Computed example of a mutant assay.
Amino acid sequence: MTDYLRLAELSAATIVEVNSLSLKPGQEQFIAPTSYAAAVLQPKTSWQRVVLRDNKVVGFIHANFDPEATREEFRAALWRINVAADAQGLGIGSYIVKELMAEAQRRGIDRVTVLWERGESSPEKFFLNVGFKPVGETEYGEIIGAYDIPG
């Protein structure tokens, strides 16, 4: 499956497709609105990529690399990962996480974090399956997961 996948920078040509990615029922409640991510992140530290399969957008990742962030869990963080509903379960999410970890390693980073909520249709199982481990909780009850990149 991943033989057909590649990452590309978010562009004017792909942003409409990213905004049109459909999710499985119930998943949308676990994704922060785009406006939230934009308000929290600095454009200079943001890393956004689309996943193309045969030149069609099937996924999106929004990460942030800010070594000066005051909270450790925001220094190298996965903010958003979306995979089109009809493409879920095909290894695309795992591919995206693998590429994120490669980017973090290129930047000399050895830990990437993600926040998730528990519940039905929660992304928790996915994050655990790709290697994130719970390391704490936010003041809002979100789980803080960490992926430690082997040195």
Rank of each mutant, 00 (worst) to 15 (best):
L5G: 05
K44E: 15
P33Y: 01
E9W: 06
V50F: 10
G59P: 07
R118G: 12
P67C: 13
Y4E: 14
A76F: 13
R80N: 08
E72G: 13
A12E: 15
R53K: 14
P150R: 05
E28T: 01
G145R: 02
L10S: 03
H62V: 05
A69N: 05
G26T: 01
Q88N: 02
A146P: 04
M1C: 11
T34A: 07
G91V: 05
G93C: 01
L115S: 04
D110I: 02
G151R: 05
L78P: 07
N19Y: 05
R53H: 13
V130G: 15
I96T: 09
M1K: 03
A63Q: 03
I109S: 14
A77V: 12
E124M: 03
K125P: 04
T34C: 01
V83R: 02
N82I: 11
N129G: 09
G136H: 11
R71S: 08
P67D: 13
E73L: 09
E117V: 02
P43Q: 11
I92W: 03
I143F: 01
P67R: 11
E139I: 09
W47T: 02
Q42F: 06
V40C: 14
V16S: 15
G145L: 07
G131M: 05
D54R: 12
I109F: 13
R71C: 03
L52W: 10
F30H: 07
G59Y: 01
